[in-house]
Write a protein that binds this DNA or RNA. Structure first.
Lengths: 210, 210
DNA sequence: TAGATTGTTAATCGATTAACAATC
DNA sequence: TAGATTGTTAATCGATTAACAATC
């Protein structure tokens, strides 16, 4: 069952399509052509059709795409029709911000536990979970079969903690620590390097100045 | 003085180079070849040399690159040798997390003010600034000549707030709101769409499962 | 000078755009 | 049936990798 690999460039665009389709759905729009969508999103109609066709024919000639159907299909492709059990490691400001963000829950990312090494934070309530000590992390991950770990800890401990998580069955890491994690084949890592993003912005400011 | 435009693909890699060079510097490494760096960073040596050469010859044949010098040059390219005056709009968890993050300050991003529409947050201390009402934002931006605004507000108000900021002289927006901002030519926008990132992770989990 | 390694040109690869036949 | 718009092939564009002459 060898499917052709879909490029990360395409995958990276799917969430944005989903966002626009969700808005259209909310506005009660039933169908849309690649041409109309391309004007809305400021991309080429060609790219839209190519992207969707990677997954095989969501549209219909002479009609366009059904908004509701397309929305559902892209959701499925992105795995948003499943429950993903998550924990957050690092209960600082950023960890708490992510824990409190309800929209992830709505998408099937279930926030099940939160850990920190700082005893002052233990027991602190974030939504319906309490911050637990790091020592309990491994067992929690195993017994609850946690799939995704969100790393919001300093880079000094990130590599080691990530390895412990993976040893206990975590399959994916959403990494906010400013360090590259080199984990075994098959373990998914998605980096959010905020300072990299800010530096890009800084570069582009300089450019537009000259 | 028409320089050839440098692609965003290259710019996007500079912060990562900077991070590795900073680590090498801290370890006391004086020089490095593209070959060595490529092994460290798991990219091709060819790409490294091409990337650096966009800015014209940081290395020396037979020797390699001087770590300290290269670090400084990339810093300059990214505009990290300048002060950037910033405000944060939206004093929720995420806004506070970013405000408290000292590393941005270290890079020249000066955190000067914070705004929120919620009266309960007014006066709240985040590092050395107090949360101010939204009504004061425009004047503050003008009188302090704010360059960068960090948007950590819900998407419902993001578009309108961004426009007000730009009208008052803000030149760049670091946008955490889950919406595309369409601002005038020359205004820089860098989006951090966290849920998009999480969806990519979710997709890749599904892939590796099959 | 000989060895090392860059800077840079050429080749390859992949992603985007254009074009149009298929078909609703 | 005629018009619209997809699905898909072909053309173009840009980014990455390979190769090697220049030079420290």
């Amino acid at each position: 069952m060898e499917e052709k690999e879909i490029s990360q460039a395409v995958i990276g665009r799917l969430p944005r399509y989903l966002r626009y389709l969700g808005d259209l759905k909310d506005e009660g729009v039933e169908r849309i052509s690649s041409q109309e969508l391309s004007e809305l999103m400021k991309v080429t109609a060609s790219q839209i059709r190519q992207d969707f066709n990677n997954f095989g024919g969501f549209g219909q000639q002479g009609y366009g795409y059904n908004v509701e159907y397309l929305y559902k299909e892209i959701s499925k492709i992105l795995g948003l029709d499943r429950i993903h059990k998550c924990i957050i490691v690092g209960a600082g400001n950023l960890g708490q911000a992510l824990g409190n963000y309800m929209n992830f829950e709505r998408r099937g990312f279930h926030f099940m536990g939160m850990f920190d090494k700082n005893p002052e934070l233990w027991g602190k309530q974030v939504r319906d979970v309490q911050v637990m000590p790091m020592e309990q992390m491994e067992e929690f991950v195993r017994t609850n079969q946690i799939e995704i770990a969100v790393l919001t800890i300093p880079k000094t401990s990130a590599v080691e903690v990530a390895e412990r998580l993976v040893e206990n069955g975590v399959g994916a890491i959403w990494n906010f620590a400013h360090v590259d994690l080199n984990l075994p084949e098959g373990i998914q890592v998605e980096n959010v390097h905020l300072s990299d993003s800010l530096m890009k912005l800084s570069y582009n400011i300089n450019r537009s100045d000259n």
